[in-house]
């Protein structure tokens, strides 16, 4: 409630604000308007075709392919490798990457490619849990905060502010310290650390859409608030949240692997990407592939998520 009041107070009471609003709305012939004026219809059309074009970019196609392959690794690793990730052939230890062992082998002769493929399941599972927690809890908090407003909003947002002020990794470390070790606990820790930014974005979007004149117009047309929420607010605020969620997949992969690298995830010999890199650390001087290649896989997946997130936000921004 307080937000509506502030906004309308600003509209009437503050010359600066209404002047700016007026300048945006009231002068179609102003400099900027005149500048974009002739190009405006084509700009609008471009937003539509631009979204299609954006999805046809080679970088984006590559990103989707990378994700499909990695999801395949996670779901049915045996389609991609028939080698057992846990038993090694001691005679073949420290074999550099080659035709027999794409990613080479480790100190006990285990195939690193097989370990990376089998590790995808655990790593992605942790990532999905983390993003799900962050998105579900964060979005709920943000939407309630933005829609209910008043004291609820104040209290929730102060809590979110504090969570945002604590660096995510530090928050995760505290949770791990309290809960103990293991991939699932690491995932929960990473998820909790991501809640605050989802809450922020969700609240911002709800407020933006909620204060949009078309939402007031819907109320003024006699639409009840559940209808307004379902038909106007949610669809119009979903875009940035979806794009943040995609971005958060990348962030979560980084955080999960960092925490397992620090030794809080699964115990060896379970293959998990952060653990693989941590294991390879002892052979940096002799077997470069043990750290380099699993790391490159992580980088590829993170970049793929980021690229798709960018496309999604361009697409939802263009549609608006």
């Amino acid at each position: 409630m307080s937000d509506i009041v502030t906004v309308s107070a600003a509209e009437e009471g503050n010359v600066g604000a209404s002047g700016a609003a007026g300048a945006a709305g009231a002068e179609p012939t102003r400099g900027t308007g005149g500048r974009s004026g002739p190009a405006e219809p084509s700009l609008r059309r471009r937003a539509g075709s631009g979204a299609v074009a954006a999805f046809l970019r080679p970088g984006l196609i590559l990103s989707v392919l990378v994700l499909l392959v990695v999801i395949g690794w996670a779901l049915v690793p045996t389609w991609f490798t028939s080698v057992d990730p846990l038993t090694g052939v001691p005679a073949e230890k420290f074999t550099p990457p080659g035709a027999a062992h794409w990613f080479g082998t480790d100190e006990t002769g285990r195939d690193l490619y097989a370990r990376t493929v089998h590790g995808a399941g655990l790593s992605l599972q942790a990532t999905v849990i983390a993003v799900a927690i962050a998105m579900f809890v964060g979005t709920t908090i943000g939407m309630v905060s933005g829609f209910v407003g008043g004291v609820v909003d104040d209290v929730l947002m102060r809590v979110v502010d504090v969570l945002l002020a604590i660096p995510g990794l530090l928050l995760s470390l505290m949770i791990v310290a309290a809960l103990g070790f293991g991939t699932t606990k690491v995932a929960i820790a990473v998820g909790v650390a991501g809640i605050a930014s989802f809450a922020r974005v969700a609240r911002g979007e709800v407020l933006r859409v909620r204060n949009a004149p078309y939402v007031e117009a819907a109320f003024a047309s006699g639409v009840r608030w559940p209808g307004v929420l379902a038909r106007h607010v949610l669809p119009n605020s979903a875009g940035p949240l979806v794009s943040l969620a995609t971005l958060d997949f990348g962030t979560a992969i980084l955080s999960v692997s960092a925490l397992s690298f620090l030794g809080y995830g699964e115990m060896p010999p379970t293959p998990e990407w952060g653990v693989l890199i941590s294991d390879g650390r002892n052979y940096l001087a002799s077997a470069w592939w043990l750290t380099t290649l699993p790391g490159l896989v992580i980088v590829a997946v993170v970049l793929a998520f980021n690229r798709i997130s960018r496309a999604l936000s361009a697409w939802s921004g263009g549609e608006r």
């Binding site: 980084l254 692997s257 890199i277 940096l284 790391g295 980088v299």
Partner: peptide, 22 residues
Amino acid sequence: PPLAISLPGFWVGLMLLQVFSF
């Protein structure tokens, strides 16, 4: 910048070690 942010910090550290130290 987006590229630099997408790299896992611990892995970058190890890569630097590998190249510049070892």
